[in-house]
Simulated scan of single mutants.
Amino acid sequence: MKAKRLLGAALALGLGLAAITSATVAAAQQKRGTSGASAAAPAKPADTPVTKKTIALTPPGIAWGMTTKQVAAVIDKMLDEAYVPRYKAVSPGVKMRALDAELAEEKSAFRRSRIDFGGLPTGIDATPLKGEYTYLNKESMMTLTRESGKRYFFFIQDKLWKIIDEHPLGEKAARGKDYASAVVKLATAFGVPGRVTPPAPDKGRYGNEVDWKDAATHFRAIERNDSEIAFAYEDLVTLGSLDSLRPNKPVDANAIDPAVASAVRKEEPPPAPPPSADKPGKK
């Protein structure tokens, strides 16, 4: 609750908002136990605000619907360009060959980073990325690791539909000193305040989020911790079709195994028959 109040205060201060969303305020009032003479009907959640500027995907050349091979080719080009200054600083010989090997390894590491979310659990389940993918629905992920941070590319049926970037927070961080200030910067850049959404673990959301969208992309600013924020970019077309693209739903770990439930039902004694209407009463 403290984090939500701080976030709301920062948005109100930076953007002149009277409130963030009626849904968030209502939820906060319920948790604080406040009540009035008459309770207002709960408001419907606000729609995702539309940005006044296009949400750009990077690096240049990346587009929704690309295959893993096509994305790898774009990353190859990006890495080639990133290494140009370093190539200019060395002469042909041992150092240049070492640079060639380093560049080739970065390209190869990106391809090897692919994880397929098949029938077996992965180590990703123990990371903040849990909830961003499902199993047995032809989903996969590739990770680009560089000094600037990590970028995750998510695919469904071998088509790119989501990108998540991790960014540091702090006094000297480009994104802001904390989550609230980072959200204010985003609202200023997009030209409109975002929609605040509280955590909902049952829906795969484990932290506060603020979101926006344009004609093609849904953008989420995800609160990770005091020193990190994540930016998620999602293809709106795929997002609207996720139910059909994910026919295999996650299994509830707390649910009773069907075989056990069936055995329990068989062991239960049959219900006693109702009293017969022909049975004589006491005289």
Rank of each mutant, 00 (worst) to 15 (best):
P270G: 14
H218V: 02
N208D: 05
T217H: 00
D178K: 05
A200S: 12
D211G: 00
V251N: 04
K44Y: 13
P60C: 04
G204C: 08
S113Y: 00
E81G: 03
G65K: 05
R111V: 15
D80Y: 06
A215Q: 03
P85H: 00
A263Q: 06
G194Y: 07
M142D: 01
R224A: 13
F155E: 01
R265S: 15
T238D: 01
A230K: 11
A89N: 03
A72C: 09
A263V: 12
I229E: 13
S108F: 08
K52R: 06
G118F: 01
T34K: 11
L79N: 12
S22Q: 04
L7N: 07
R151A: 06
D47M: 03
P271E: 15
L15A: 12
D257M: 10
A18C: 12
A39D: 13
S91A: 14
A182T: 14
G204A: 09
N254S: 00
A3P: 06
G16R: 05
A10F: 12
T48C: 08
D100K: 07
T197A: 09
A23I: 02
K31L: 10
I163M: 04
S91D: 13
G14C: 13
D278W: 11
V260S: 10
V94Q: 03
A18R: 15
P168H: 04
S276I: 07
G207K: 01
L99E: 14
A232I: 03
R224H: 13
L236H: 03
G8T: 13
F231C: 08
E102Q: 06
A221E: 04
E81F: 04
Y233V: 06
D226T: 13
L236A: 02
I20F: 01
G240F: 03
P49D: 10
A253I: 10
S38I: 13
A221H: 12
T68W: 02
I164K: 02
G281D: 10
V196Y: 05
L120Q: 14
D76K: 13
A56K: 01
A39Q: 13
